[in-house]
Each structure stands twice: as structure tokens, then as C-alpha cells.
């Protein structure tokens, strides 16, 4: 716990006399540095800005960009933008949720997978789109999604 809190002190120090209007920027920087916003970070940020933890968390959850769990070894993004929606991304997401047994925003217990829903990946021509660790997968179907995730599992066993 202490290590994480210490980690963000250098970030906080960059904002002397910061007030609540710096909250989003600080949250972003913390997430960039750690991959997610931990409970300890929320409390530390709150103490630094003299804001209650509930407020910091409330603001952070208002924006979809923040994660509160560390990402898994495979970070899976499913696009739910308009184009992808039209091409059936809802059932795609459903398949992925069931396959991974986690909800968007969560990370599996073994830290293997994390799931995120994004608004538009900017690749509408390839819709519906999924993304694993930054790599795009075009014109996905539920079957192909399951194969893709199995591939990840195999990769993990081999390495």
C-alpha cells in the first residue's frame, strides 16, 4: 500500500497549491504512470487536494477513461461506438464478458484479462472492432472473439 502512495507523491508535487480543478489532470497522470487509479491513489489525491475520497471517486467514475483495477496481462477493448454497434458489437461484448467471466472495468482474478468498453476506436471501416494490448482485430464475430481469447491463453501457457 505504502509503495503505491509513495509512487504518486512525485506527481502530486508537480502541482503545488493545487485545487480541485487540477483533479482530472492529476487522475490522468496517475493512471498513465500506474495503468489504473488505485484506492490508495484516490485517498492520497484526496488528502492532497483536501477533497473527500468519495468526491474524488465520484469525479473519476464520471469519466469513462479511468480504470480502478490494474490491467490484466491481456487488456481487451471492445468498441461500442455507433458503427460497431450497427455491426453487432453488443453480442460481441456479451460473448467476451461470458468468456472472460468479468465485466467491463474489471480484471480477472488471475490478472490474465482485463476488459474495457470504448466509445469508438477510430477504425469504423473495420467494424466491429476489438483490440488486445493495442493490436486491432477487424470484423469480429463471437466465434472469432472466442478464438482470439483462447489464443491469448495459449500464448500465456507457452511463454
Amino acid at each position: 500500500m505504502t509503495t503505491v502512495t509513495q509512487d504518486i507523491q512525485p506527481i502530486l508535487k508537480k502541482y503545488p497549491n493545487a485545487r480541485r480543478d487540477s483533479l482530472i489532470t492529476i487522475l490522468q497522470e496517475v493512471q498513465d504512470a500506474q495503468g489504473y487509479v488505485s484506492k490508495e491513489s484516490v485517498i492520497a489525491i484526496g488528502q492532497y487536494l483536501r477533497l473527500p475520497a468519495s468526491k474524488v471517486f465520484g469525479v473519476a467514475t464520471f469519466y469513462n477513461q479511468f480504470r480502478f483495477h490494474p490491467t490484466g496481462r491481456f487488456h481487451v477493448q471492445v468498441c461500442r461506438g455507433t458503427a460497431c454497434h450497427v455491426k453487432g458489437s453488443l453480442s460481441l461484448l456479451d460473448t467476451v464478458k461470458k468468456d472472460l467471466k468479468i465485466l467491463p472495468g474489471q480484471t480477472s482474478r488471475d490478472r490474465m484479462f482485463s476488459l474495457e468498453v470504448v466509445a469508438c476506436l477510430g477504425a469504423c471501416g473495420l467494424s466491429p472492432v476489438m483490440c488486445v494490448n493495442g493490436e486491432f482485430f477487424a470484423r469480429m464475430t463471437p466465434t472469432r472473439a472466442r478464438k482470439l481469447l483462447d489464443g491469448c491463453r495459449k500464448e500465456a501457457v507457452q511463454s
Binding site: 484506492k39 484516490v42 485517498i43 473527500p52 475520497a53 468519495s54 468526491k55 474524488v56 471517486f57 465520484g58 467514475t61 464520471f62 480502478f68
Partner: peptide, 28 residues
């Protein structure tokens, strides 16, 4: 001046809750 609870999430998912949606017993 306690602020144990606040609005969490937004839109249809919005709830009033504690930070990290823990139980009130471990909140402030």
C-alpha cells in the same frame, strides 16, 4: 462535513455511494 457519500458513475449507471462503492461500515 463528512462526505461519506457522493454521486458515483453517470447516466443510467449513476448511484449515490461511497468511494470504491464499499460498505458504509468501512467508510468515513
Amino acid at each position: 462535513g463528512v462526505s461519506a457519500i457522493d454521486f458515483i458513475h453517470r447516466g443510467p449507471k449513476a448511484v449515490v455511494g461511497t468511494a470504491f462503492e464499499t460498505g458504509l461500515n468501512v467508510s468515513s
